[in-house]
Design a protein around this nucleic acid. Structure first.
Lengths: 229, 229
DNA sequence: ATTACTTAGTGTAAATAATACACGCTATAT
DNA sequence: ATATAGCGTGTATTATTTACACTAAGTAAT
């Protein structure tokens, strides 16, 4: 291999905005840094890309290290490359958002070497973030707002079996507005991608709601047809 | 600055899908490479990012070198980082699409050091491309297809003064389908972002059409309101 | 001047989708 | 038995989308 390429010292990193939905709130996972720069600051989870891994692999690895899970829905959405975004050198960061089911059994939060601890934080009440992570978060938030109108990503935040009210909550909290219950149900059911499980919630202290499941096969058959909220 | 960062030799490049609209066709600018790797192949214009420039600056520079213009509409849309995408080393490429008015006075096509020549090619008839540029092009094409449904990017491909038929042609060629003339005009005018210039085409060998202009100020006032095709 | 040609420009009816809106039902808890 | 909390449902109105075809205006050729 000719060594013509690197003209200066540079590297790439991945930053992940990992969304979770819990107790009616949209949250993201933040880590408290244990290393310079920005020691003791809150930051998005992220890391350098290694030599023999693609960007998607790297993002998958980071999410796996954080959660122990390896099938998390994720998507690359923007790359941040301002010259001075990292105080120690030229680091271009490729941002991913990821969506996680938080139902009941909270996700594991292992401590990695560069982080003291990781916490779920409501997106409406975030602390000041390290680097340009505020900007990275905001762009990710915008992205899922647009995305949820046309793509079935809401289901990635819910348990496999969910009620229509829970689904509506996800839409409301991401779009940041109230939706009409009857219209929501009418429209959502009209897409024909939910399977009624003929099953009810269990253990709730009020009338139990019907459980539904997202039907990927029916969704695939819609092909190009636009879903719109 | 602590030299802790670069863990291996790597670098980033920018690749640009520069779209132009001319003679009713959507075209992109391709260069014929004059350097290894992929010498004599067709490729998207692109280059390495330099030490002291941001990604946007780098894309702007590349477009300027190609066209002599410096106010080209462009947008970053995806980053390609497979390990083996570049045969000479680890090169992560940040992709931009750009939109250019080609009306009449064809854009300049200077020859740079690594390219023999640059040519406009109809997107429906592209040659085999170097690296993963086919994939980069396709993703860019998808991007503008989605984008044109909600954002006023069609105007970036037209001269300042344009007819409704020309505008419709842009939509048709990007969306790759015929649109109904009456419905198109009704809807487009209903957004209220076109200014009727009370002026006619000149020098055409048939009935001259009314010229319009995109009114950015009126568009800005729409704010969040969705435009949809 | 007449004619042929080419594109510009226009309206309506029908179907579909979006919105606004309120109350009885059902399971649980006491 | 009763209170409570969330479930589940329908209709009328309005707005949007779609389908569809002819006349008008200018140019070019004879």
């Amino acid at each position: 291999m000719k060594e013509v390429l690197p003209k200066f010292n540079s590297t790439f990193s991945i930053d992940c905005v990992l969304f979770g939905f819990d107790e009616g709130e949209l949250k993201i996972l933040l880590i408290e840094r244990n290393e310079e720069p920005f020691k003791d600051w809150w930051a998005l989870p992220g890391n350098l890309v290694e030599e023999e891994e693609s960007l998607d692999q790297s993002a998958g690895r980071i999410l796996h290290e954080l959660t122990g899970l390896s099938d998390i829905y994720m998507e690359q959405y923007y790359t941040f490359g301002d010259v001075a975004r990292h105080p120690q050198g030229r680091v271009v960061s490729i941002a991913y958002y990821a969506l996680l089911r938080l139902g009941g059994d909270k996700v594991v939060k292992p401590v990695s070497n560069y982080a003291k601890q990781a916490y779920w934080r409501n997106v409406k009440d975030l602390p000041r973030l390290a680097f340009d992570h505020q900007q990275i978060f905001e762009k990710g938030m915008e992205k899922i707002k647009r995305r949820i109108k046309h793509q079935p990503i809401a289901f990635e935040l819910l348990p496999e079996k969910f009620t229509l009210t829970q689904l509506q909550n996800v839409y409301e909290v991401i779009l940041n507005k109230k939706l009409d219950k009857r219209n929501f149900r009418k429209k959502m059911l009209s897409f024909g991608v939910l399977r009624d499980l003929n099953e009810k919630q269990y253990g709730v202290s009020f009338r139990a709601a019907t459980l539904y499941k997202f039907d990927k096969r029916k969704y695939a058959k819609l092909f190009g047809k636009e879903i719109s909220f």
